[in-house]
Design a protein around this nucleic acid. Structure first.
Lengths: 105, 105
DNA sequence: CAGTTATATAACCCACGGCGTATGTTGGAG
DNA sequence: CTCCAACATACGCCGTGGGTTATATAACTG
């Protein structure tokens, strides 16, 4: 699963992720809160679903969408290659992480 | 300066960033290594420049482009809101960071 | 100065994607 | 079974943006 840069490039989809970060929501709730048409909301949800960023739970007649953070973790891994450029204490931080791994106190 | 999701959504632009992560490069070098036309390379560089992701140094007749990581740091800050979802030891890590800040040994 | 090299800009073409309206599908209510 | 509610899909419209070719600009070369 590649990093979904293009999926995240869409502002409304990021708004959906922000909303789902608080709690899972129904399609109707998202439609109302985003101010989009229902079909458009469904379309964005489909894109997010195919990118692995959300998953659905059928709840009777309704569908509850919730966050799936794995692709964001991959984005984080990509960012890691650049992180030392702005994080002055990055190397020291990494040593501490290694330390934690060896001795998970 | 907003987070340049749309700028990063373009694969060739990410390739440029990857190349500039190794070392600064001339436009001609990038053109050759990317296999793009020179105008197209310049166009991508302009987008990256206006997003604050690269900066130029005039070097005689040539222009040397180099990375500017600040916008990526902002992307990292955005990701931070989601990080606890996949990083089990995130809270413990944060405590260690705070500890470092108080006592920069 | 003229000629050449390095890069930027302009003008155009075309595919992709976000939006809305209309319609299909599925599940619950009576 | 019928009707309705929640959601998904189909289709058409239109703006945006990546690609190309042609041209402008600017600096070094002699």
């Amino acid at each position: 699963m590649p990093i979904p840069f293009d999926v995240l490039a869409e502002p409304q989809r990021r708004r959906i992720l922000d909303l789902l970060l608080e709690r899972p929501r129904l399609v109707g709730e998202l439609t109302a809160e985003l101010g989009l048409s229902q079909p458009n909301t469904s379309k964005h949800l489909r894109v997010l679903r195919e990118a692995g960023l959300v998953r659905v739970r059928q709840d009777g007649q309704r569908r509850r969408y919730e966050l799936r953070p794995e692709p964001l973790a991959e984005l984080d891994a990509w960012l890691a290659h650049y992180r030392h450029l702005w994080s002055a204490s990055f190397d020291r931080l990494e040593r501490h992480l290694d330390q934690l791994k060896d001795d998970p106190s």
